[in-house]
């Protein structure tokens, strides 16, 4: 997987799924739903995000509900990767299944500000801040999860595997 370079949106600790996408929006068509992402924190978030941006967040990102709409709306807004000090288990799985790279890294959180540019290498878990020439080591995913992300998510991955027979 190539290095992802993006501008940071920074979020704190314990960002739960009702912040990422409140339950009452879950039955909106995805195209409409993405405009509600992070609404309780910042109603303008969806309008401000540019495709190619990334998220850096604190501990337990995505805690709460199993709703896959949470990583889905972030992906649909063009978020290319999420780095968090730690992830809630189901969110982590859902992001991988949607082909959205996730890296766990505690150290980088205090070193970046919103708007900074960061380089993320999902294959190795390496994170670099070019402006400061600083580098951090995040978690490295097991190969079979990297393969799912590289294939674009679990469904494309299973279709590819099926074709290979």
């Amino acid at each position: 997987m190539t290095v992802i370079t993006g501008r940071i949106w920074k979020f704190g600790h314990g960002i739960d799924t009702d912040i990422i996408i409140p339950a009452r929006y879950l039955i909106l068509p995805l195209e409409e739903m993405k405009h509600k992402a992070m609404e309780p924190l910042d109603p303008e978030f969806a309008a401000k995000v540019n495709p190619g941006d990334v998220i850096v967040a604190g501990r337990n990102f995505g805690c709460g509900s199993s709703r896959e709409q949470a990583p889905a709306v972030l992906r649909d807004l063009g978020i290319k990767a999420i780095v968090a000090a730690s992830f809630a288990r189901i969110f982590f799985r859902n992001a991988v299944n949607l082909g959205l790279p996730v890296v766990e890294c505690e150290a980088v959180y205090d070193q970046v500000r919103e708007g900074d540019v960061v380089e993320i290498q999902p294959d190795s878990g390496r994170i670099r801040i070019p402006a400061k020439a600083e580098e951090y080591s995040g978690s490295r995913l097991p190969d079979f999860l990297l393969k799912i992300i590289n294939d674009g998510g679990l469904i494309p991955h299973l279709i590819l595997e099926n074709r290979k027979g």
Binding site: R67, E68, P71, R93, N97, F144, L154, L158
Partner: peptide, 18 residues
Amino acid sequence: TGVGSTDGAAVMATGEIW
């Protein structure tokens, strides 16, 4: 245990999960 929609769909098709 709880999972997301894609994991759910994969289980629906295969009856398996990692």
